[in-house]
Amino acid sequence: MPKIAVVRNWFLPISETFIYSELVNLHAATAIVCCKKEMNQDQFPFDPVFKYKSNEALSAILRKEHIALIHARFGLTGADLLQVKQELGMPMLTSFHGFDLPTNVKSMQKYKGRLDLLFQEGEAFTVTSKNMKKILVAYGCPESKIFVHHSGIEIEKFPFRDSIIPENSVITILSVGRLVPKKGMNDLIEAFNQVQHQWPNVRLRIAGEGPLRHELVNQVKRLNLDQTVTFLGALSYEDIRNEMQQAQVFALASVTTKDGNQEGIPNVLKEALATGLPVVSTRHAGIPELIRNGESGILVPEHDTAGLAQALLKLIKNPDQWKPMAKQGRKTVTKLFNAKKQVDELENIYQKVIEEFNQRGKEQTDDANKRDHTDL
């Protein structure tokens, strides 16, 4: 059973439940976590976790723990660990998730010219969508090194239920995401304003926290939506599930930011679909790989607030469409985004990378021995 070192600078931000889910569901490999800062330990209990301050300290940990493979979470971490990988002569798998893509201007600056070396030296890379794969290939990553590996959700934690109109006839639209530009919350609020003018008996609940909160609260006040839009703040995993059980419609208006930051395939959309919520979202990044427009949800162009409003109104006015969309959404998530299946796939990737690395090492040793024998 191979031993894997999962390296993430911070273990673990509340928005990265998918990393924790993979860790605790491993069964054909064992894992340790290495990080510079530990956080949210009550929500993400794991043992063992090793904290390190320098690459030298990390190398000592990996050597002592007899690690077979480094799994760097996020491209920037992979670039930071190149020296460790080379020093230990150890294979490394790097997972890209969205903000770390080279299309993001800020991330490219942080790579400091190391991205080409990462693509050259790294044994393999995972991306969460086909869209991400195209981006990495366009920036020079060998296609043969890339695995499209969807992050999964624990389906059983999101019980399916039929979305029905409540007795008070108030329709609740739920959105969940950090209050940052790429989540498009300002577009959603503008679209909701249009919806509310045509269908007053509707409410919007936004779960999440972030630097744009003050700006978004002011937008709500300016539009006189104080009584119909509620900011819930950062919620626990359990509280988000409860919100999904109570809502009638889910919306996420993801956009590509001016500096090129974008999503992969947001896990919260998978969770909403698994719950049985009809979904409205945008044709952004890998989202169309999850949601088929008109079948499991409705997709509109980025920043199209009028289109977003019309999509929401279409669902609100046609509750008979909720159930067939919900069934299709649950079917898609169960088939392609089930955490257990995705962990099996990840472990297969681990095994493949380790075996190919060891085989190359054996071949190099054999070649060297043949050269030595010829010289004699």
Rank of each mutant, 00 (worst) to 15 (best):
V268F: 01
V249G: 01
W199G: 06
V343N: 10
N55D: 04
V170K: 12
D116C: 08
A57R: 13
N318E: 10
A138T: 09
D100R: 01
M39C: 14
R161L: 08
P142Y: 08
H27D: 10
R161H: 12
L188E: 04
L308I: 10
F44T: 05
F357N: 12
R203G: 05
L117Q: 14
Q321N: 10
F250G: 00
D116K: 10
V268A: 03
M108Y: 08
S163H: 04
N55P: 06
E356W: 09
T172H: 07
G276P: 01
E271S: 01
R222L: 14
M1F: 03
F147S: 15
N201I: 06
P288A: 03
N267E: 09
I316G: 05
W322K: 02
K341T: 15
M90N: 02
F50E: 05
T128L: 10
G152D: 00
T126E: 03
A28I: 12
E215K: 13
V49R: 02
V6H: 08
T374M: 13
K370V: 13
K110Q: 13
K157N: 12
L93Q: 02
I349D: 04
K133C: 08
F99L: 10
Q321E: 07
R203A: 13
L346H: 08
E345Q: 11
R360S: 02
A309Q: 01
G329P: 00
K53Y: 12
T365Y: 15
D375F: 12
R178P: 07
S95L: 05
L115I: 15
Q109H: 06
V268C: 00
D187L: 12
L235R: 09
K157Y: 06
E190H: 14
A138H: 13
K183G: 01
A253Y: 08
T17D: 01
T374A: 15
F158M: 02
G152L: 02
V217H: 14
A309C: 09
K341M: 14
L118N: 05
N267P: 03
K134A: 09
V249L: 10
A274G: 02
A60H: 14
L277F: 06
L136V: 06
I19V: 15
G297Q: 00
